[in-house]
Simulated scan of single mutants.
Amino acid sequence: MKATSMSVADTISWYCAIVLLGLILLASVRENSSEDVQPVRGSQLFDRPCDEIYVVGEGETLHTISDKCDDPFIVERNPHIQDPDDVFPGLVIKITPSKSRN
């Protein structure tokens, strides 16, 4: 009797795990499909909006990002930047514009 109840419990836990995994995958697919993702090419890189969380792109420097986003205090607000000259594509920084942008 004890072996049968353990077998039933194991089966139920596997079904629950599979259902949970399916729900997670379904939510992930829905979330990704709702976004209108378009690749950034050429000069579009410098036309990107300045979101609060900004990912440095190819050819960008802290100076160009500061000018574009109107945030002269990028280094001060991002303590993980040890060397302002060592900025690379993919680096995530926080942007806080000093005035509202149109």
Score class of each variant (00 low, 15 high):
E31C: 05
L25A: 15
S33Q: 10
C50D: 12
E52W: 12
E60A: 10
S98E: 15
I65L: 06
D86F: 07
C69I: 05
G57R: 13
V8F: 10
R77P: 00
M1K: 06
F46Q: 03
M6P: 00
K99L: 04
C16W: 11
L45V: 02
E58H: 13
L26N: 05
L21M: 15
G42A: 09
K94Q: 14
V92H: 02
D83W: 01
S5K: 08
Q82N: 14
L25E: 02
I81N: 11
G42M: 05
A9N: 04
Q44D: 13
P39K: 08
S34M: 12
R30C: 14
V40S: 01
F46M: 09
D83A: 04
P97K: 02
F73H: 12
Y54W: 03
N102Q: 12
V87R: 00
A3M: 02
G22L: 14
D86V: 05
E76P: 00
S5L: 14
D10A: 12
C50R: 09
P84H: 06
L26V: 06
S5D: 03
D70N: 15
F73M: 08
M1S: 13
I18Q: 01
F88K: 10
I95N: 02
I53C: 00
R77F: 01
V56S: 03
K68C: 02
N78R: 07
A3W: 02
R48V: 13
S7E: 08
V8K: 04
I74C: 09
W14M: 11
L45E: 07
P79I: 10
M1E: 11
G22M: 13
H80K: 12
V75Y: 01
H80R: 13
R77V: 00
S34G: 06
T61F: 09
Q44M: 08
E60T: 11
M1A: 14
K99C: 01
N32K: 15
I95C: 04
S33L: 05
S33G: 00
L45R: 14
D83P: 05
L91M: 15
V75Q: 08
F46R: 03
P49A: 04
G22K: 00
E35T: 08
H80S: 14
T4F: 11
C69A: 04
S100H: 08
S33R: 10
K99W: 06
N78S: 05
P97W: 05
M6V: 06
K99I: 09
G57L: 07
C69D: 04
S34E: 10
S13M: 13
V19H: 02
E31Q: 14
F88I: 03
I95K: 03
D85N: 12
M1C: 06
E76C: 00
S28H: 07
S43G: 01
D83S: 11
D71I: 03
